[in-house]
Amino acid sequence: MILNQFFDALNLGVLILDRDLKVYKWNRWMEIHSGISAAKIHNTPIFEVFPGLNTPKFNRSCKSVFKFGNLCFFSQKLHHYLFPFKSTAYSGHEFEFMQQSCAMGPLRNDNNEVEYLYIYIQDVTEVAVYEQKLVELNMKDGLTGVYNRRFLEKKLKEEVERHRRYTGDFSVVLFDIDHFKRVNDDYGHQCGDFILKSVSSRIDSIIRNVDYLARYGGEEFCCLLPQTPLKFAAKVAERFRVVIMDQEHNYDNKIINVRISLGVSALQSDITTADEMIKRADEALYRAKDGGRNRVETI
């Protein structure tokens, strides 16, 4: 009686299954979030009500609890949830279902045989939302919202590694806003920031899902183009150039135009590392600057 009250008072989902995986106990938290009463689900095979649970991992875990008396865990990071319940956390996040951290363990009878298994479910949606925000903050540039340099360097190394292993084309475009100092001097730094955001978001809107646009530093950006040969990367760069040239930035009722210069490089027999790729793209970018700006140069 007292234990039952405690069981129902917990801010955790708790259920107990017998060896046939039929529901033996279902606490109030489970009733509230599933909308199924304890009386109704009692003695029902759990897979009948939650067929999504019937996975190799879940079955393996049940077996290991009954066989070895083990504890098993279902982390939110990997599984997201065991039971598809609607999230009660504040809105504005992208999780369709409540994010759950779950564990499973044995319950023994007087003869020390594992007769039941328990599962407890912790709602970790809010933590998962914060974590997701932190992860995002860690990869994104605070001003422009495109990826930051740290992420770029990590991704670039990964992509070089991947393309070397599986072979395939991989290119990068490095670009820089021409005479950006003049924008800052003529219109102020706030306007400069506005231009950085505006240019990066325009480019970001025309690249593929598999490409990565990152702020490389100051007014310099870098775009990774997986599975793209140099020839096509040069075309992409040219498209960037034209799109930005045609873009009008309306700041404080003033129409401002900027141009970009671009350098393109790709993995090839004499360029085999991430550092080399960036170095060669940077050299090409310098040539574009020297050659009169608002132009594309390739290696």
């Binding site: 996975t55 190799p56 991992k57 393996r60 875990s61 290991s64 066989k67 070895f68 008396g69 083990n70 504890l71 098993c72 865990f73 982390s75 990071k77 990997l78 599984h79």
Partner: peptide
């Protein structure tokens, strides 16, 4: 079983080691 998003291979690795370790030790 698990859809791989951006970076979860190390999480998957960790959880798999934990699961197999847990089972082996338990056994």
């Amino acid at each position: 079983e698990v859809s791989l998003e951006s970076d979860p291979v190390d999480i998957l690795e960790r959880e798999t080691l934990m699961e197999v370790g847990n089972i082996l030790i338990g056994a």
